[in-house]
Simulated scan of single mutants.
Amino acid sequence: MSRTLRRVAAAAAAAVAALSLAACAGTPAASTSAAADGELQTVTAGKLTIATGEPDYEPWFVDDDPSNGKGFEGAVANAVAAELGFDADDIVWVRTGFDAAIAPGPKDWDVNIQQFSVTDERKKAVDFSSPYYTTTQAVVALNDSDAASATTLAELKDAKVGVAAGTTSYTVAEEQLGDANLSVFNTVDDVVLALQSGQIDALVTDLPGAFYLTAAVVDDSTVTGQFEGSDGGDEFAFVLPKDSALTSAVSDAVDALRADGTLDALVQEWLSDAVDVPVLQ
């Protein structure tokens, strides 16, 4: 998700983050899971403690209940846990703020999943697994505009589409739609305001940001579709405490799920079919 949109979401969870930090202390205890490949060090012996945000939005989790295994990240987390040798009953879910999760210091969880983009700056404070998803770009349209029912790129070329200058969204929109009907703004915030005021019919942003906008920011809007390909997209990965003994094992699990097609199948199930966000052709 773009930093601007994530900042809005993070502010709403600030109180939760403070409570979560208070619980962080101690050194992880060693545990051995007979089903896992080798010895895994976890916070609680025999359990895998997975953290996520509060609240959780669809399609990443469903019904704000990470334990039900539904939603894209809920399903990915369960698949990785199983790959590591943990049953669903061995998963302990906890909640954290976004900023607290990537801050330096001890953690009271083994892994954290809540659309964390991998960046060099964040790597200074925490570990990242191999990426489980690379974001695509998507179109958010007002429900009363023709763009809301567009199913092809051609149908969007007559719409007034807003993008922020210098972003991946701008690059993709220009390549796919041309620049004749693009309205270019200085920031993502400016683009969102233009959509809310009816200056534009639609905007282009990363798919996670699109879900957040339609759920919590822009009334009477919808995610029309997503562009094919993920070149230049943010990579989402599990966050682990810095120098965690689990980092290699979690990365191996993610890589295995990518290799056998599980991750692609979950992307199709939860980020396309379940939310009716087709790939625009």
Rank of each mutant, 00 (worst) to 15 (best):
V161H: 09
E58K: 13
P55W: 00
T152V: 00
A125L: 07
A88V: 02
V139E: 06
D179H: 11
G85M: 07
T167G: 09
A82G: 13
A141I: 06
E235F: 02
D276E: 10
R6N: 10
A45F: 03
G198R: 12
V163S: 10
V118A: 09
D255C: 07
P66T: 06
K157S: 13
A265T: 03
P104T: 02
G261W: 12
S2K: 13
A35E: 02
E235Q: 15
F238K: 01
V277A: 08
A180E: 12
S244N: 03
A10G: 08
A265S: 14
P104Q: 03
T4A: 09
A22H: 12
K157Q: 14
A17Y: 01
S251D: 01
A12N: 02
D260K: 09
A256M: 06
A245Y: 00
T135K: 08
E121L: 13
A256Y: 04
V223Q: 02
L21M: 10
E54F: 13
E121F: 09
E174Y: 14
S145F: 06
F116P: 02
G85P: 06
P59T: 11
A215E: 09
K70G: 01
S129H: 05
A14D: 03
T171W: 06
I50D: 03
F116D: 03
S67Q: 11
V94Q: 07
D179F: 06
W109D: 04
L271S: 04
P241Q: 05
A159E: 09
A15Q: 10
V192F: 08
F116A: 04
G233C: 09
G71K: 03
D108A: 14
D255F: 07
A180Y: 02
G229N: 06
D190R: 10
T247K: 12
Q176M: 14
D89I: 00
G53L: 08
A194C: 06
L182K: 07
D127F: 07
A23F: 05
V80Y: 04
V163K: 14
A15H: 10
A100S: 15
T205I: 14
A103M: 09
D206H: 14
T152H: 04
S129C: 01
R122Q: 09
L142R: 15
V163N: 06
M1I: 14
A81G: 13
D260Y: 04
A125I: 00
T52N: 08
V62E: 01
P278Y: 09
V139S: 11
A79D: 05
W109K: 05
D127E: 08
A265H: 02
A12C: 00
A125R: 11
G26M: 02
T262R: 12
D206A: 14
